[in-house]
Each structure stands twice: as structure tokens, then as C-alpha cells.
Design a protein around this nucleic acid. Sequence first.
DNA 1: CGGGTCATTGAGTCAGCTCAAGGCTCGTGG
DNA 2: CCACGAGCCTTGAGCTGACTCAATGACCCG
Lengths: 247, 247
Amino acid sequence: MAIQANSPQCHSMPQTNCSTCRLNTLCLPISLELQDINKLDEIVQRGRPIQKGDRVYHAGEKFRSVYAVRSGAIKTIANTQDGQEQITGFYLPSEIIGMDGLATNAHSNTAVALETSAVCEIPFSRLEELSAQLPNLQRRFFQLMSKEIANDQQLITLLSKNNADQRIASLLLSISARNHNRGLAAEEFYLPMSRSDIGNYLGLTIETVSRVMGRLHKTGIIELDKKHVKILDMAALRSLAFSSDKH
Amino acid sequence: MAIQANSPQCHSMPQTNCSTCRLNTLCLPISLELQDINKLDEIVQRGRPIQKGDRVYHAGEKFRSVYAVRSGAIKTIANTQDGQEQITGFYLPSEIIGMDGLATNAHSNTAVALETSAVCEIPFSRLEELSAQLPNLQRRFFQLMSKEIANDQQLITLLSKNNADQRIASLLLSISARNHNRGLAAEEFYLPMSRSDIGNYLGLTIETVSRVMGRLHKTGIIELDKKHVKILDMAALRSLAFSSDKH
DNA sequence: CGGGTCATTGAGTCAGCTCAAGGCTCGTGG
DNA sequence: CCACGAGCCTTGAGCTGACTCAATGACCCG
């Protein structure tokens, strides 16, 4: 718990508005003028930190807000008809969650913190009003939803066409790239999720996840110590993820 | 070809505006007042019928419009990094395609007609302007994108957690339900796509699709003649799709 | 130090894959 | 009118990647 509280993402916590947030070149405010950012800022509610395992919202809850991840990491879980759970995404700082609730006015997913995290709550009715006034914000929000669709479709392809090695390699590359975008190292990072979460997300068993990660380690492509990953051979990892032959 | 041209969906062709279109309780105009529907109608462009195999838009093309399927059926295809194709959706009348292009301002998918079809083109810049004026339309479009996300996440779950029988059963039920929504029979319909399309979409080989469909036929759950499907035991199909045990 | 959670490793099984052969349907051309 | 080729689908036989089951290891916390 002490380790979680000291996680490196937490130094963005003292930020109290969007215009000074170091994530504002990635998050919802992109392409907004300073005065428009301030308008957005007025409707954003910053909550207290949430602990590992806490929910941001849960399936069935009335849809009121979307949330920007400010620090930490969040997983979203969809419940299937037969009572199983499917992790539909891992979300890192600057990424937006909660858009699943729009269609039916109730969240279809549950969002759970993977470690101590902070989120900015954005009441959707206010965001809608503001979007009608600020064309750039409307466009930006459409784009965010479209990005979500594109991400989901990439996962669909991964699950439909790729073997275990390719799925794991792709996940590592995705996290690496997103960290890099936020100004962190692309080659070295902590995985905020458990092996079981990875398996659930990628449609694999925990044993297979463990074996594949072990193999990547043995072949010298990554260094691995529990959740600490260091990519030693980025090119090899890429060619593994994107090679068309399954063997 | 003659058969395609006489396909049952085509009698919606003579419609020339949204307010009299029999799909307007399902399509984009939902929840709009009559006068607002007319405003929407002014920006909608109705094109000529497109033939089987024709593209509505293709990957890489600049994003300009979204499209409502008016008749026929459309598949959307994403190209993977390694040159494979992944079908990401089958779209029936009243459903909207093209929203994949918003994030990057270029389409990431290619949309191909599965049979002779007609689409309504909706230029996005005009739709954006109108959305800012009509809160209901803005909300409606957000909802459509959210619905798309929800659909994609259901497919993710299907691919990640369900076996071949469950995947096929779920697809049949989905098409059945969507036909029913449009006032067509839930129990009897033509599959507009090939076995190979089904396999691609569901992450299965064509042989497995064929075997599973044959098995559903033999066990008396469906009647099957090429692409003509009749669901004989809806309850059995549902319990097959949603049972939690894989065996 | 004991109990719980999470991860690793091994051995055997099986669902869905690959490879291969053959059938059905439709359009074209002799 | 029929023969033929091209697509699409079906069916069979055998293989294999990922699963299941099982045991053990590593770590944390009380």
C-alpha cells in the first residue's frame, strides 16, 4: 500500500486546473484555446485519490459523468450474459473512461482502480452544453469516442487473428507507446495489472500469459521482474507482434 | 444479380426524405421533432444504389461523411499491420457506418456492400454544425457512437471468452434481433454474408463455421439452406449462446 | 510462522486448425 | 443444350497451440 501511494504518477496530484495540468496536451483540452480550457475547467470536478480495487463507477449505475484518468491506472470490466467478466480496457493518465454509459444512459462497464489513482470527473450534461458552444470541444469529444472505437477494433483484430505471443507483445508495445507519449520511458515500465487481468483482457489463461512472458524473458527480448518490464529488443518485440505467420 | 436487385430490402428505395422514411424511428432522426428532422434532411445526400462488392468508403480515404444504411447490407473491414483483413461489423438498414474516420480524419476501415444496397450520406461538417444547434441531435450522435463502442465490446467478449458454437449462435441471434427491430421476421432471414465473412468476423476458419452451422441444422435448432436460415428452436439457440460452460 | 494471494512450471487433453478431397451452383462459350 | 471452370461450401483426417489440472514457489501481512 505504501508502495502504491508513492507510485511515480502521483506527482500530478497537486494540479488544480486543466490549464496548468501537464496532461493537457493529451487529454480532453487538446485544441482548445486558453479561455476555452478555463471554461472546461469550471465544470471539471477533481475527486480525492481512489485506492486500489475501488470503483470509479459500476455497471448499471446511472450515467452522469465521464472521467479523465489523472494518475494511476484503471481497468474497465464488462459483465457478460452468463456472469463472467471481460476486461475491455486498461486506462492510463490522460485517457478518458465512462463513455460506455452514453448509449443507454447507464454504465455498461465497471471501472476499477488497479493502483492508487486520481480521476477528474466531467459531468456529461455540462460537457454537452459546453460542446454546443465550443465547436472544438464537440469535435474533440467525437474524436475521443472514435479513438475508443478504433482501439476496440484493434483489440478485436488481436483476439480474432493473433496467437498468444503476438497478443502479449502487442499489449507490451501499447503500454510502452502510451508511456512514451506521456513523456515516460518507452523501454522500461511497471505493469499496473496482474497476470490474471492480462489473461482476461487478451483472451488467454493466466498460465499461458506466464509462459509467454517467461519465453520473452528467456529469449532476451525483455527483462522481467514481476511487474517490472524492460524492453531490451524493441525491434524483435515489434516483429513478433506484427509478423503475419502464426508459427 | 437479378436476385440481388429484387432483394426484399429494396422497397425502401423510393423514399426521398427522412421524415417519410420508414426507418426514421431507428436511424439518426430518433428523438428529433419533425421540424428538426427536416433540417437534418436538408444535409442528407441520397446516392444511387451500390452493387455487391462496391465500396462506400475505403481505408485511408479522407473522412468527410458518415452513412446510414438504407437497404441491403454492408461489411466494414479493418486492415491489420501485417496485411490481413479483419471484418469489424455487419451493418443492416438504419445502422450508421463511417464513424471510424473521426479520430484521425481519415477512415481506418473499408466499407463494402454485401449485396445491392443504398446508403444516405451525411456530410460530417454539416452534421457537426447542426448538432451544435440541436441538442437532441448532438446527444443522439453521441449515443450512436457509444452504441458502436458497446457493440465492439460485446464482440471482444465473444472472441475472448466464447467457443465456436457460442459465437455462431450469438451472430444468428444478433441478426435475428436486428431484423425483428426493423419489423421483419425474427425466425427466418437470409444471411447477406458468405461463410468466409462469418469466419473472418468471428475469428474462426470457414471449415469450423460450416461444421457448426451443420451441427445446428442436424440438432434441429435451425433449418439451413445455403444462406437462408430459419430458427426452429429460439430457446435452444439462446441457451447455447449464453451458457457459461464451454463444453 | 502460518495463511492467503499471485505467479510459475509441468504433463496431458482437446477444440479448432491445417491440409486435402469432393460437391453444388452459376455463368460462359462451343 | 451441355460441358467446363470458378467460387463457394461441405466433409474427413490428423495435428497443435492453448487449455485444464496439479503441484510448487515467492511474497506479503498479520
